[in-house]
């Protein structure tokens, strides 16, 4: 069980529990409500500033770095409700498909990270690599700058097809949380373009490992090396001596890219719950 399963799982994997998705559509404003500035307006470069601060702190020294990292992990600059600064979690394709069956509506949107890193705008539906989930997406026009490129609504079957296509191309799937019990998106990430992945792999917060790890069946593996190309985490390397794939399960995020890419079904995903030594590897 990951921290979010303990908090919000109600006995099941938390992201397969329908209670953890955005739910109510309308909130009546209080009569005495004052217009408040949204977080984005107050701090437009929020995400970017967090990363810059960490790099600057690395130049200053270990104490400064630890203090800056602690502020990020306590979530001061990030989303309220994310424990330890973990906003996202790696999700294998099969679970992502279950998620799109459950959440609605589903809107394909442009990726914020790719927009920031490469100044690309994903304007047409085949280009999109991110998906917004839940009723909040119906109000996307409040933030046309964030949703530059528009929102393309898809049915759950179309969403599955979209996920499978991105999986074939080699993107790992992850969920994104935007508040307590509020799974608001499915991202398709690759290092280093994805900010969340870069922060996890380089600084140690923002994305949680998934609920599975990959295992290789050496009898079936023919040493083609496709899986090694697909691993985003450096967990899967070719064991050159015996010419078979080798997976470091301590590093594995359980994204399942190696499994879906294997032409001989030599790799399978195993639930972490069955492996006692991995219970605290997140």
């Amino acid at each position: 069980m990951c921290i979010y399963c303990e908090l919000w799982g109600d006995g099941m994997t938390w992201y397969l529990n329908p209670k953890n998705y955005p739910r109510h559509m309308y909130t009546l404003p209080r009569p005495d409500a004052k217009p408040r500035a949204a977080a984005g307006e107050a701090n437009p470069g929020g995400y970017i500033n967090a990363e810059r601060a960490l790099v600057d702190a690395m130049e200053k020294g270990p104490e400064e770095f630890e203090a800056t990292l602690k502020a990020m992990r306590d979530g001061a600059d990030l989303v309220q409700g994310c424990v330890g600064g973990f906003m996202g979690q790696a999700v294998p394709l099969r679970d992502a498909e279950k998620m799109v069956e459950m959440a609605n509506p589903l809107g394909l949107i442009a990726c914020l990270c790719r927009k920031a890193m490469l100044a690309v705008e994903e304007r047409s539906r085949p280009e999109t690599t991110c998906m917004g989930l839940g009723v909040g997406m119906l109000k996307w026009e409040r933030w046309p700058e964030r949703y530059k490129g528009g929102v393309h609504w898809v049915s759950s079957d179309e969403a599955k097809e979209w996920l499978r296509d991105l999986d074939t191309r080699g993107f790992m799937h992850s969920l994104m949380m935007f508040g307590p019990r509020f799974i608001g998106g499915i991202c398709n990430c690759d290092y280093p373009v994805c900010d969340a992945l870069a922060m996890r792999l380089d600084f140690g917060f923002n994305m949680l490992k998934g609920h599975h790890v990959a295992m290789v069946d050496h009898d079936l593996c023919n040493g083609c090396g496709i899986c090694a190309q697909r691993c985003q985490f450096g967990a899967l390397k070719m064991n050159v001596t015996i010419d078979k794939a080798n997976i470091d399960q301590m590093r594995c995020f359980g994204c399942g890219l190696c499994e879906t890419g294997c032409p001989r079904q030599a790799i399978s995903l195993v639930e972490k719950a069955k492996l006692p030594a991995l219970q605290e590897v997140w």
């Binding site: 630890e66 990292l69 992990r73 973990f86 949680l208």
Partner: peptide, 20 residues
């Protein structure tokens, strides 16, 4: 308070400060 919050540490603190 009961949660075991993971704290992965990819940055080697002993090497800080670094110059960029």
């Amino acid at each position: 308070s009961h949660l075991k919050v993971p704290k992965p540490t990819p940055v080697d603190l002993t090497k800080l400060p670094l110059k960029f």
